[in-house]
């Protein structure tokens, strides 16, 4: 039993490091070769876990080889367009100038139902609104709407709005988040000054966000629940 626990810990750490080295990507965003490596890693890790007769080192070595290959493949893909095309494939234009390319759909084995479903995922419910639709290598559909179907932007309205600033959590669960204050080029004194004007004590705040323009939002702790 102890050996199983130890083997599991070793393999857990190996797989975690392996996935970290591959970079942060969700399964849906993975390139084909990344998906293959992820599937293989999970399969290989399971072998020494299921079969105690197999040395753990064999699994660790196999996972290391996969990670090595994945890193090399990603570096080569970055350097060469040809290798990127071979390893990851290339994007396919499904709708061009509002016209569906049926041959392209046949090539990628996509049905009209699939296309409509992917468009709905992009909040596009009317096919005639689409100017361009590109099927990316990770299976996502990128959509460019026709001019008359696009959402009006502040640029279109020629509005002069202040620059956006990312609000960061500066107080979380009654504790000051020093990292966020540093990122906002602010400090505790400035925070205390803001809090002085509000009725809240730090210990009563569940979440407080602040941006570089000094805009803040406070969510009070709910002691009743």
């Amino acid at each position: 039993m102890i050996s199983t626990i130890m083997r599991t810990i070793i393999l857990y750490l190996t797989v975690t490091i392996a996935i970290r080295l591959m970079g942060k990507r969700q399964i849906g965003d993975m390139q084909p070769n990344e998906l293959v490596v992820t599937l293989l890693i999970s399969e290989i890790a399971a072998i020494p876990l299921q079969d105690n007769e197999q040395p753990v080192l064999v699994g660790v070595a196999a996972i290391s080889v996969l990670i090595f290959l994945e890193i090399i493949a990603s570096i080569l893909s970055m350097k060469s367009f040809m290798i990127r095309k071979v390893l990851n494939g290339k994007s396919v234009v499904i709708i061009k100038n509002g016209v569906i390319d049926q041959q392209a759909m046949r090539d990628v084995r996509m049905t009209v139902i699939d296309l409509i479903e992917l468009l709905r995922n992009k909040d596009v419910f009317n096919l005639s609104d689409v100017a361009f639709a590109v099927l990316e290598v990770n299976g996502n559909l990128s959509v460019l709407l026709k001019k008359d179907a696009q959402t009006v932007t502040t640029k279109d309205l020629k509005l002069n709005l202040p620059d956006d600033s990312l609000p960061l959590p500066v107080i979380s669960d009654g504790k000051i988040v020093a990292e966020s204050l540093k990122a906002l080029q602010s400090n505790k004194n400035k925070l205390y000054k803001i809090l002085k004007h509000s009725k809240y004590k730090i210990s009563d705040i569940f979440l407080m966000t602040l941006d570089r323009n000094g805009n803040h939002t406070i969510y009070e702790k709910d002691y009743n629940k």
Partner: peptide
């Protein structure tokens, strides 16, 4: 990443 690959190799 290249250093990681070299170390693993």
């Amino acid at each position: 990443r290249l250093i990681y690959a070299a170390v693993i190799l």
